[in-house]
């Protein structure tokens, strides 16, 4: 009698466990793999915002709220310096992180400042206040003699008339082109008219100094191998 009960109980356990896991499986909604654009690892960042490229293409320009190069460079000590934070930051305690990324990861219009939030090219770096400092005053401690070199001009660094311009700025931490060259927060003069051609560096190459000088190649064995 007991053995039958035990058997029944074991049967019940097996059945229960089976249906429990079965139930779990049903509750599981399989996530379909997002089809990624095939990429070259070292160029990965170029494509980071590629999924928005078509939106950028079809987006009408909001001329009234576009940034200009002048305001863009006003906010930097020199071309390539991390911009300071031009607006008050409510959250004082903390390193920035999600508080900053709320607006600066994907951008969008901010009523309060009547402007589009610029998109960061490096959202993975979350200690924002490490490099970007909120300005509290416009006064100086003492005057500075620092020479702020004029920023590279736009649109004239082509090799041939009409050929794609080379990239006149450092790429370090700015590898993602679309974050600054497309979208409503992009600077008027830097707006690219073909954001859908997401493989930017196919045609636009960095200027020299970015690359190390390599000796001219000389074949020593005269092709006998």
């Amino acid at each position: 009698m007991i053995s039958i009960l035990v058997l029944l109980f074991i049967g019940f356990l097996i059945n229960w466990t089976y249906s429990y896991y079965k139930g779990l499986e049903e509750a599981y909604i399989p996530i379909h793999d997002v089809k990624e654009i095939p990429i070259i690892p070292s160029e990965k960042k170029v494509f980071e915002r590629a999924e928005y490229a078509l939106d950028y293409l079809n987006m009408p320009r909001d001329e009234n709220h576009q940034r200009t190069l002048e305001t863009y460079y006003d906010n930097r000590a020199y071309a390539g310096a991390p911009p300071s934070i031009p607006h008050p930051v409510k959250e004082k305690l903390g390193i920035g992180g999600n508080i900053c990324l709320q607006c600066h990861q994907n951008g969008g219009f901010v009523d309060k400042f009547n402007a589009y939030a610029p998109v960061t090219p490096h959202p993975e770096m979350i200690n924002c206040k490490q490099c970007h400092a909120e300005q509290q005053t416009q006064t100086e401690f003492v005057a500075s003699n620092f020479y702020k070199r004029p920023a590279p001009e736009v649109g004239n660094n082509n090799a041939l008339p009409g050929s794609p311009p080379a990239i006149p700025h450092q790429l370090q931490m700015r590898e993602n082109c679309l974050s600054c060259h497309a979208g409503p927060a992009a600077v008027k003069e830097l707006w690219v008219d073909h954001p859908e051609r997401i493989n930017c560096r196919q045609c636009h190459v960095p200027m020299r100094q970015e690359v190390e000088n390599v000796q001219r190649f000389i074949r020593t064995n005269n092709g006998t191998q």
Partner: peptide
Amino acid sequence: AAAGMFPGIVFAEEQERGIPADANLDW
């Protein structure tokens, strides 16, 4: 195929010609 995507490597010299002087930073 990847190399073919970066013709700039081949044309680097030509690309640099006609570039404004401000690219001549010495790092």
